[in-house]
Design a protein around this nucleic acid. Structure first.
Length: 823
RNA sequence: GCCGGUGUGGCGGAACUGGCAGACGCGCACGACUCAAAAUCGUGUAUCGAAAGAUGUGUGGGUUCGACUCCCACCACCGGCACCA
């Protein structure tokens, strides 16, 4: 008997697949299309890790399943090759990023192939190639032309180690997402002139469309929170003696008559005007400086760092409740709701601030509980956001209403009396897209002293990233490109005068916001893609990853919507189904890391047990959305399972012909086909595998008991098993498929069909309960009526003794399932 | 704090629209093969109990003939957001 040797088999089939091009997708095929992909990879010197093995196997299994089931299945591959990891690696290795990429990527090719992933290598893309980033730049130009790209000086998070600004979502717990070790510095804020994409223009429609998405629920909620839509009222106030108008936003307008003071952000541009020439000017400016300095240094702590100062100015209060003193306050968010807020006793922060500086408060809403109400009245506690709270001070007709029901009437009142207007605010900010780094797509802008910033004409794209010797940041906050004087100095495309190129490069999130579209037309040099081709293949049927729930996924949706509006795409949403899958941690639950030295190298596992076993283990360990802990016993166990299939096939092939048919194994096989097919469709890989294990168990038992009775039945059972296991363990599948007498590959158009008549059993096991407790089982013909089952139950010895002569008052009967006797 | 999710044997996890809790795998125990071991194969394995039986899906209540599943309250853990008025 031939021994199962994964190593030989796997390398043999890898070669054959490569030579025959089975995984090459024909984008013009008339078959139904299916595209399954995982978030593409950052190539770094480290190669693939177990997390990659997890992610890409998930989409590979689905791609393979669909390919076998008759779809034109496309499992694309590409590289997110711009960005800091690559640049840092290049700096460390002492070669240019271009050169190191040329070395690293082919390495990944081997590793991807070793995993047995069915990628279509003929359509491979990499974001750092001029052929690709030409279109990344073009997207910037299109955004610019559409008025969605603009420049602004803002306080930005800055990472000293990266020497670049970071987007909000790249700051995690006060540290850079790339440098979050204990020894790494916290990010600081800096004033930087930046390019932004106006994603906030799309906030509402992105939010609206979220609910309908077939995505992992946590990601949908994360996106909704990120967008952070809030509805309320925008009040307009006038500053006394100055006549300046200021607007403040309130999402809880019910308690507007409780307002007793106002706070303004230290960063607010109006601060200077408020205090100019007054006695308050000096102390206020000192406070502003103090607060801003602290914000630059540390992450702001709301609890500890509340402070402020009176500006000397008042708002003329239009509600008839008195003027409101304006204070500078550290806790006001500068870029939300205008950075100016009116405050009341019913907000915790306002309350704390007022207590600290002895600012008068006036509660207007009270709980039903008398003791509590007194505490609120005496300003001992801050009472807020309780729908049951009763308003004591409110416009006529609303007094006495509960906070929970007063909202609409109050807003109407406010609008009718021209005190304010309905308004919607979002937490989401515009997307900061410029980075002061070398290794990215240059922003296609030329600054001209006379014409201002000008787009590089489309005909001149791509703006090729010049090859440099020293590509570390210039040190003055600009990228290394600032040193490339020949490259920087160009003519203005409009007037032909002296011009200078933008030295910032584009955030790599732009590269990754549209790459899925390029997969369908990777070589197009005329257009970003051919719409007719892309429309046939979009949206992406399946997408998965274990990171980037907000940023990347939101940006990809934004850019897709932008293209949709431009008429380039029929679909407005890029990803039809998105699975936010779990990660793999060490057996002790700790994250794998190089410094801990607890890593598991997929390539090492492969050389020991084979890729098929690794794939089976990863897909079997738990449901895909759950984090798994690496189990050293897991891969050997998977290998054992594959070995049992191998042995069954070898023994069957060596056995003598038997003309009979074998109903038992046919039934089990058909049931398994049905179960695995539906589990794969529902992404329940772990139960799909367990039902194949059950099939193997019962086939083995049948073999031990009766031998290989019924050759055609056995042939069918084993062929089906091989087809079912193929998405998970493609190498052994093709090998056994061939041994079972086929000359083609199992990978394409070979998915077994089940026959429903074999799935349905003639007899069923009915459960007999007494008062809901299981007391016996009956084997009955399918469809037996209540009367038949009842009389059989009363004949049953166990039931008889359990009943012990007591009277049956009621019987509940569920066809083919159970009989419950109530006594 | 807010939002979302999850709690089932020694462990990872099964259980369709409420109907045999613990599939499948790991581990463990015993057995077969072997001089022996590994590998492989077989049997057993929720808890208490000698057994009949009883108890069991985070905790406490509820609905129901019947609850891991539905409802209410609470606890624990995980993830996201967190000065957003």
């Amino acid at each position: 008997m031939k021994k199962y040797n994964p190593k030989n088999i796997e390398s043999k089939w890898r070669k054959i697949w490569q030579e025959t091009g089975v995984y090459k997708a024909d984008l013009g095929s008339s078959k139904p299309k299916f595209i399954s992909m995982s978030m593409f990879n950052y190539p770094s010197g480290a190669g693939i890790h177990i997390g990659h093995a997890m992610n890409y196997t998930i989409s590979d299994v689905l791609a393979r399943f669909k390919r076998q089931a008759g779809y034109e299945s496309y499992h694309p591959v590409g590289w997110d090759s711009f960005g800091l990891p690559a640049e840092n690696y290049a700096i460390k290795a002492g070669v240019s990023p271009q050169e190191s990429m040329a070395k690293i990527i082919p390495n990944y090719h081997k590793q991807y192939q070793a995993m047995g992933w069915s990628n279509d290598w003929s359509k491979e893309i990499a974001t750092h190639t001029p052929e690709y980033y030409k279109w990344t730049q073009w997207i910037f130009s299109e955004m610019f032309r559409a008025g969605l790209a603009y420049q602004d000086t803002r306080l930005q998070w800055w990472c000293d180690k990266c020497q670049t600004v970071l987007a909000n979502e790249q700051v995690i717990d006060g540290k850079c997402w790339r440098h979050d070790a204990i020894t790494d510095p916290e990010v600081v804020q800096r004033e930087v002139k930046q390019w932004f994409f106006k994603i906030t223009d799309y906030a509402d429609e992105l939010l609206e469309a979220t609910d309908a998405l077939d995505w992992t629920e946590t990601v949908k909620t994360a996106q909704k929170n990120w967008i952070g839509k809030s509805e309320g009222v925008l009040f307009t106030f006038t500053v006394k003696d100055l006549g300046i108008e200021l607007q403040s936003y309130d999402s809880v307008p019910q308690t507007f008559m409780a307002q007793t003071f106002a706070v303004i952000a230290p960063e607010h541009p109006m601060v200077r005007e408020l205090i100019e020439g007054t006695e308050h000017e000096k102390p206020v400016l000192e406070m502003v400086d103090k607060i801003r300095k602290r914000k630059l240094k540390d992450k702001f702590d709301v609890e500890k760092d509340i402070e402020g100062i009176f500006t000397g100015r008042y708002l003329a209060n239009p509600f008839g409740t008195g003027d409101l003193p304006i204070w500078i306050a550290s806790f006001v968010v500068a870029d939300y709701g205008g950075g100016f807020v009116t405050c009341s006793a019913h907000d915790e922060r306002d309350f704390a601030f007022a207590k600290m500086y002895n600012i008068p408060l006036r509660p207007v809403m009270f709980p039903a509980d008398e003791a509590m109400a007194k505490k609120v009245r005496d300003l001992e506690v801050c009472y807020h956001h309780d729908p049951e709270g009763v308003l004591e001070q409110a416009p006529e007709g609303i007094v006495g209403m509960k906070w929970g029901e007063a909202r609409e009437p109050i807003i109407k009142y406010i609008e009718e009396h021209n005190m304010g207007t309905r308004s919607v605010q979002y937490k989401m900010r515009d997307w900061s897209v410029s980075r002061q780094r070398y290794w990215g797509a240059p922003i296609p802008i030329i600054y001209c002293k006379t014409c201002g910033p000008q787009l590089v004409p489309d005909a001149d794209l791509p703006v090729v990233l010049p090859e440099l010797k020293d590509f570390s940041p210039s040190g003055d906050g600009r990228s290394a490109l600032a040193r490339a004087q020949d490259w920087v100095h160009v003519k203005c495309p409009k007037c032909g005068g002296e011009g200078e190129r933008e030295t910032d490069t584009l955030d790599t999130y732009i590269c990754s916001s549209w790459y899925m579209l390029r997969y369908f037309d990777p070589a197009n040099s005329e257009k970003i893609f051919d719409s007719s081709l892309v429309n046939k293949w979009m949206p992406i049927d399946f997408y998965n990853g274990a990171d980037h729930a907000t940023a990347h996924m939101l940006y990809a949706r934004f850019v897709t919507r932008f293209f949709h509006k431009k008429g380039l795409l029929e679909t407005a949403e890029p990803f039809k189904k998105f699975l936010f899958n779990g990660k793999v941690t060490a057996s002790d639950g700790q994250m794998f890391s190089k410094s801990k030295g607890n890593g598991v190298d997929p390539l090492e596992i492969i050389s020991q047990h084979g890729a098929d076993a690794l794939r089976i283990y990863l897909m079997f360990a738990a449901p895909l959305e759950i984090w798994i802990r690496w189990d050293p016993q897991g891969v050997p166990a998977a290998l054992r399972f594959l070995g049992r299939i191998w042995t069954l096939v070898q023994e069957f092939l060596a056995a003598e012909e038997s003309p009979l048919s074998n109903d038992i194994i046919l039934r089990t096989t058909h049931k398994t086909i049905k179960k695995v097919t539906s589990d794969l469709g529902n992404l329940k890989y772990n139960t799909a595998i367990s039902s194949m294990m059950e099939l193997v168990n019962s086939l083995s038992a049948e073999k031990t008991e009766h031998g290989f009775v019924g050759s055609t039945s056995w042939q069918f059972a084993l062929e089906s098993l091989v087809q079912l296991v193929a998405p998970f363990a493609p190498h052994i599948a093709d090998e056994l498929w061939q041994e079972l007498g086929h000359s083609d590959t199992v990978q394409k158009d070979h998915w077994p069909a089940w026959d429903e008549s074999f799935v349905r059993d003639e007899t069923v096991t009915l459960v007999v309960q007494i008062n809901g407790k299981m007391r016996g089982k009956l084997t009955m013909l399918q469809g037996a009526t209540e009367d038949v089952v009842k009389s059989a139950a009363f004949e049953d010895e166990k039931i008889k003794t359990a009943l012990a002569g007591s009277e049956v008052k009621r019987a509940i009967f569920v066809q083919d399932k159970l009989l419950n006797l109530v006594v």
